[in-house]
């Protein structure tokens, strides 16, 4: 019984939150990694692209809520995601046309594009705050819990409760669908294959008649979709605040690099590695150990390896370790 309790506690505080967070990071990292694979630079504006797409979705959600349209137990924001994606797509395509295309034609060095993306980051950041302001926005509605801690206890008779928020379950499901669609697209469709060809060998792809501008446009569209979905899921799970999205840049980059930048499978693995380490290292293990160990060995302190405020340090340390010992990432990505 104690072992069951221990694992339920672990699931409640580590596994379920980390699965949801990992899915959000994986979707974010997929966007970063696609940009890197096709456009060949690290996009510092990705966090703010997420914020912008989410903001569009939040505004649409409010509109739907005001009109009385909802999904019952599911959050209304799900209906608003297409609007968010459209908003983000318009923004990134306009940016590409006005800004990035010029540097592509110049064949500018990747580091110049990174600096350009810093400028874009400022602009997006300003735009998002301009429209919705810098404050926290709550847009989640619908049923709060799939199963609450109390129901779980009554159901199983265990001392520990396992609460699964609707948004957490939703995050994992939506992320799974999105990733499946993405991989189907990349591996099965003509456009997807041309994208992979372009990423592998640009000259050869051009030679075989692939239109580079089309590849770039499709990439931006996919990135807009991934960023918005990741952003909306994160916002539903926690809350929407532009600055938090900017800060997500670090774990997202860490996830993309740890997995092997330019490699979509790696981005997903990286997302979960970062999420599980972050949650695991900042979790107070006292409860788990108390169930697990004999009473004489029960720990006195919280057994929290690092305080939650150091979660950035976790992504960073993993990032550095991977970069030092396996610079191509866990899955073989491109080396910068």
């Amino acid at each position: 019984m104690d072992i069951l309790n221990a694992f339920v506690a672990l699931a409640n505080f580590v596994i379920v939150p980390a699965l949801a967070y990992g899915s959000q990071l994986a979707l974010g990292a997929l966007g970063v990694t696609l940009i890197y694979a096709i456009l060949r630079f690290s996009n510092f504006a990705h966090g703010d692209t997420m914020a912008w797409g989410t903001m569009c979705a939040v505004l649409a959600t409010w509109g739907l809520q005001a009109a009385g349209i909802g999904l019952g137990p599911l959050p209304t924001a799900l209906l608003a995601i297409p609007v968010g994606i459209a908003g983000a797509a318009v923004l990134v395509l306009a940016t590409d046309r006005v800004v990035y295309r010029f540097y592509r034609e110049q064949k500018a060095k990747p580091v110049i594009l990174v600096i350009v993306s810093m400028g874009i980051m400022f602009v997006y950041n300003g735009l998002t705050r301009f429209v919705i302001g810098p404050d926290d926005q709550n847009f989640a509605d619908g049923e709060r819990f799939l199963i609450s801690a109390r129901d779980f206890k009554a159901l199983t008779g265990l001392d520990e409760g396992l609460a699964i928020k609707t948004t957490q379950a939703l995050t994992v499901v939506v992320a799974l669908i999105t990733v499946a669609l993405l991989f189907w697209f990349l591996n099965r469709t003509r456009t997807g294959k041309s994208m992979r060809a372009y990423s592998d060998n640009e000259d050869l792809a051009l030679l075989s008649g692939i239109n580079p501008e089309r590849v770039v446009t499709v990439t931006w569209l996919i990135v807009a979709a991934l960023a918005t979905i990741a952003g909306v899921l994160y916002g539903l799970d926690k809350s929407f605040k532009p600055f938090t999205y900017f800060q997500l840049l670090l774990p997202i980059f860490a996830a993309a690099i740890v997995g092997g930048i330019g490699n979509p499978l790696g981005a997903i693995a990286g997302g979960f590695v970062i999420a599980f380490s972050e949650v695991g290292i900042t979790y107070a293990w006292k409860k788990f150990l108390t169930y697990f160990l004999p009473e004489s060995m029960a720990p006195d302190g919280l057994v929290q390896l690092l305080s939650t405020d150091y979660k950035f340090a976790v992504s960073f340390v993993i990032l550095v370790i991977v970069l030092l010992f396996r610079p191509t990432g866990l899955f073989k990505g491109q080396t910068i």
Binding site: F41, S42, P110, V111, V114, Q247, L249, L250, F253, A254, I257, Y310, F312, A313, S315, F316, L319, V320, L323, P327, I336
Partner: peptide, 14 residues
């Protein structure tokens, strides 16, 4: 270059 940028970004946050 790119990796150094991301590493320093992290250091500053830490």
């Amino acid at each position: 270059s790119d990796y150094l940028a991301i590493a320093t970004l992290g250091i500053a946050e830490i």
